[in-house]
Design a protein around this nucleic acid. Structure first.
Lengths: 237, 237
DNA sequence: CAGTGGTCTAGACCACAGG
DNA sequence: CTGTGGTCTAGACCACTGG
């Protein structure tokens, strides 16, 4: 493992355990680079990672201060899947695969320039149950040229887990879009909506490390159970 | 200005102008560091900034590939205010300050440990009009120990602009939370809701560079006009 | 194999905060 | 003034890609 990442994990641990309490300063970069026996630049990479993840705030001329954002509710951002979300929050939940079949590339993805007209995709619909209610409906379109088949039993677990662990592919980045849309017939059919008129829709274009378009996902959430938390830094200049 | 930031801007410009077309590789780091006359680490800082902002994707052993996310719709993430959002999208809009007064620290912020019980805050309510309809209602609670007064005319422009430009303070980071809530009497009073039952609510705890809590904002959006776009990278490990 | 990006170093100088 | 973080360098070695 990389030195800077080891150091990142070590300091992160010390912040979470209270060894470095919120509101207080970390030792200086010079000091810590000596303590860990690394160059200052390497130590600084570890601090940069802590900064990006909301653990510390740096101030030129003063030092690095420990934040307490992570005490109560740690923001789940980036590309997090339902499975990971569920695990991080220890929610009892279940997944039912409703549809899992190959279809020709849908027009809206061809028009968007994400797929070729003659391609095939795997069309996947999954119900996400929490406390025995379907509160999320996930619709996935996955490029067949990248994945031939998806075993339904695996999909009841995690799609990303299967792709990254079983297939050894790396998901890299996504463009995500949050809106609130009117419920469709499909929503009514598959979700427990109790007379809601709208759902939160999260649309994602997902890409692999080699920049190939891999998957389009539409995640439809019941209003009363939707929550998205983010730690954001202000971009200077 | 920093070398790495100058280089970042230069490459960003070349990507946006099509000099480096989407899908193609940038020159190698070694090559570019020579071209710009800087060390490789400095050149790499510029590339890191491009990576974070979704302009390129790097692949070990291969190179840096230009992405085309920014062609159509560039994700607005981080800490972006209504004013900046509006400018980036060239929307005709208007702001009306409805309330601007000092009140004692509200209980929910004291309970959250963000304010002391004996503090005062500036309570600000602003209507955001687009096409002559109030589609956003912003409610701000701003710490009086940091800002004494907010001139109402300035608030019709941008709060952040006033704080960073006129007062010379630096907003650093925020914890943001997105939910969908039932409309309140206040929403009905101040917003043009056409019989909607819900609004999107974005709650933010905003902090300064010295980690002082500065502001709590509740931004209430009409469902049909809400949209949030984000570029997200998957966190490895 | 050569060429790419990823990590790390030891040191330098600068900008800023605070006594 | 000292001590802090911010930037930059010149070079080294490693890991990965693809011919």
């Amino acid at each position: 493992m990389n030195k800077f990442y080891e150091i990142y994990l070590d300091i992160k641990e010390k912040i979470e355990s209270g060894f470095y309490p919120a509101g207080q300063s970390l030792p200086s970069e010079h000091q810590m680079s000596q303590d860990y026996g690394v160059s200052r630049e390497t130590l600084r990479k570890a601090l940069l990672t802590l900064l990006e993840n909301g653990y510390i705030q740096k101030q030129q001329g003063k030092g690095s201060i420990v934040l307490d954002i992570h005490r109560y509710n740690f923001p789940v951002s980036g590309l997090t899947s339902f499975k990971e979300l569920q695990e991080s929050q220890a929610i009892h939940s279940e997944t039912i695969v409703v549809v899992n079949k190959k279809i020709p590339a849908p027009k809206f993805l061809v028009d968007a320039g994400l797929l070729d007209a003659d391609e095939m995709v795997i069309y996947l619909i999954r119900q996400r149950l929490v406390d025995d209610e379907v509160i999320i409906l996930d619709k996935d379109y996955i490029r067949c040229s990248i994945i031939e088949d998806l075993p339904t039993p695996k999909m009841e677990n995690s799609l990303y887990d299967y792709i990254e662990h079983d297939l050894g592919m790396q998901i890299a980045y996504a463009k995500k879009e949050f809106t609130v849309d009117r419920v469709t017939k499909e929503d009514k059919k598959y979700m427990d909506l109790n007379s809601d008129t709208h759902v939160v829709v999260v649309r994602s274009d997902v890409f692999l490390e080699d920049t190939r378009f891999f998957q389009y996902t539409e995640s439809r959430h019941r209003l009363d159970r939707f929550k998205f938390v983010e730690f954001a830094r202000r971009n200077k200049v």
